[in-house]
Nucleic acid binder design. Structure first.
Lengths: 219, 219, 219, 219
DNA sequence: GATGAATGAGGATTCATTCAT
DNA sequence: AATGAATGAATCCTCATTCAT
């Protein structure tokens, strides 16, 4: 194949990689059961049977897609493990993740599809990578100024809230932007959303002046 | 069955209604393409063919499910049209929606599935119901105290943020609660989340003391 | 289908039955893995998918074929349970079975295919029907004149020998008749074989004059 | 591997031989259509493609297996060509074959599979080797004491009967031993069967005292 | 309204085989 | 002699849908 052409990156990457790319696109658009092996194969101009030279089957391919897509996120966050999330730090984190998702919006959708389907395809990833990551994220919040205004239980929800706000942007865009008459998931919209999230971050992490705070909690 | 007895509530609802129930459950779990007519039928202990006496086909059934599930939400919000969203008002709205979703978590998932799939199955619903609803929601925010601290563009995103926070809770639960070691989508968790959202509402709607606010917007 | 034509037997039996017939033919010729559902379906002029309205799958169909084919044999033998196998009785049994197999040579081949494949598809049949049948057959031998000239262990083998001689005729015919230059599995050949088996039966069951008998047994 | 070392026995046999071994095992278990090239290859820890360096294809491999397995049998019998089958002689033959099959039970199963499939894969073997072999075997019977008690036609069947009794033991074992509660195809069982066959041989070849003999032939 | 049977289209996967390396 | 990758043809089976009853 690349016998004469020296550059291995030209003409696309290795077949396995190209399959993963196509699969990621389709799985993130249509979910696991909505995606046909045949469609992935034809996207890579390959006979469906050839695909089985690279992956054991649909499920195996799906898992490989999930793992490959999630890996960078884990790296981001692992790298910042042990820090405390001051608003600046948190903003940085948000920026990092939003930038990555701007380039790979598939990830948010994959995650969402997977959660809707029950998360069974990524049980091992959850146990192995997400659990410590989440624990560390919450710990970072706890070490930051958020600690002053949120109870321990709320810190978990606060962490989750950031994920909802980030993932939601990429996932609910088709419906919401249609309802709002905006243009959908453009890079600009994502940048705007990132800036918006920064503001939200400050509001949520910094102590709040309002005296009626936490009234409905009963304490 | 209920041929002579007029009462529609006796012996469960009418077949059509039971089909809708089963379909709602399965569609919200597995999405449109992941759900088989046969499975819906067997859930209602009905021959798949019989289903076609009640609905024109899979797509038609899916739309009916969407419409039926979304209707109450529209009613809630339409009823409160024209108001201004003071924090109290907004909290009430949040409570109302969260209460409804606690009883019908399917809705959030249906919406999410639909958005992931591109929203084509609810184009008409969006145009007919969601558009005015969203416009009104944003207007309500604009009329409230939020107006002081958010630009016009941000108001849209603020509205969207509430939706992300609400929908996210029901959709990302399987993955997040697994990663957090919590128990999943229990009614208690939802109540906690509602209280948390009240606090968030205040933080986001009321003016914020911090002076650095909107710094990153300005540069 | 048979709405206007009163006779239910004309135009072939019910579809399920016709599928079983075709399946029996093909399975007995080519074995389980050598037979394609598609071929069975096309033999009955049916879409392969239709077949799944009648049977759960290939394996289920195969088992149904086995059961249906073996049933008459079990009935034969159960009916004669408890008798003693005098040569006359044994001859009768042989005749009965050979007559049935002459009309249904598939059975012998099915049994043989199944045994070659390890017998896993008929474990339940073996346990439920064949075990008592075999036990009774050996007991019948024991009660007959065979008892004089065969040890207990040999009686089992004697019983098996009859089965080998009967099944072998139907199974090894293609190879043997080709090697002998005879015509194959004609009804006449089967009749001849039956007569031959009668002679063999006498020789094996009646006491034997030869004094060197059982020399090699060491007793 | 054995590129420099000339010795073919070191490190197992040559690859070709190892392929034949694996193929023989699988073909005899599952028949031609039930056996996958891939399975044979993986048994030899070889890429399926490599197999085509040694054989032209599946069919070619199958024929090679058949020929290799049958050859020793032909040698046995050819060596004893022209003799007459006194009971002693016949017993010896039976012993020889049973001993060989005890070590290579595959052969019996291969033959049976092949016959069930119509024998087309060994037409040439049949014509070239089996035909004279069978002719000679029957001639040997004719020259022995069997001649006194069996008609010419019956001699053919007598010869076939020995084959049924021998092959049957190896082929029907799974089903029969399951039905009898015995242990299957152990070497001991085969030895017992050999001894049993010796007794049967005498009974069938030596003249029989019973006066009613051949009664059913005559009427 | 309900059902058994039928079906064309598709869906995942296997298989024997080829070919460049 | 070995292998990774590719492939067309099958293989089993599912799916949404139709139709006669």
């Amino acid at each position: 194949m690349s016998s004469s052409t020296a550059s291995p990156t030209v003409e696309g990457q290795k077949t396995t990689e190209r399959i993963l790319d196509a699969a990621e696109n389709l799985f993130s658009e249509r979910g696991f059961s909505g995606t046909a092996i045949r469609d992935i194969a034809s996207e890579v101009q390959l006979n469906p049977a050839s695909l089985y030279n690279h992956f054991d089957g649909k499920e195996s391919l799906y898992k490989a897609v999930l793992e490959r897509a999630l890996e960078p996120i884990f790296l981001f966050i692992e790298r910042s493990a042990g820090t405390q999330w001051s608003p600046a730090e948190a903003e940085h984190m948000v920026t990092l993740i939003m930038e990555y998702l701007k380039a790979n919006p598939n990830l948010a959708r994959l995650l969402c599809h997977e959660s809707l389907a029950g998360g069974n395809h990524m049980r091992h990833i959850i146990g192995l990578h997400m659990q410590p990551l989440v624990a560390d994220g919450i710990a970072a919040l706890r070490r930051g100024p958020a600690e002053e205004s949120w109870t321990e239980d709320e810190l978990s929800m606060l962490f989750a809230a950031f994920i909802h706000l980030i993932v939601g942007h990429f996932v609910l865009a088709p419906v919401l932007s249609a309802a709002m008459g905006t243009e959908g998931l453009t890079p600009e919209a994502t940048d705007q959303h990132t800036a918006f999230l920064h503001k939200v971050t400050k509001r949520l992490l910094l102590p709040h002046s309002d005296s009626s705070e936490s009234t409905d909690e009963g304490c």
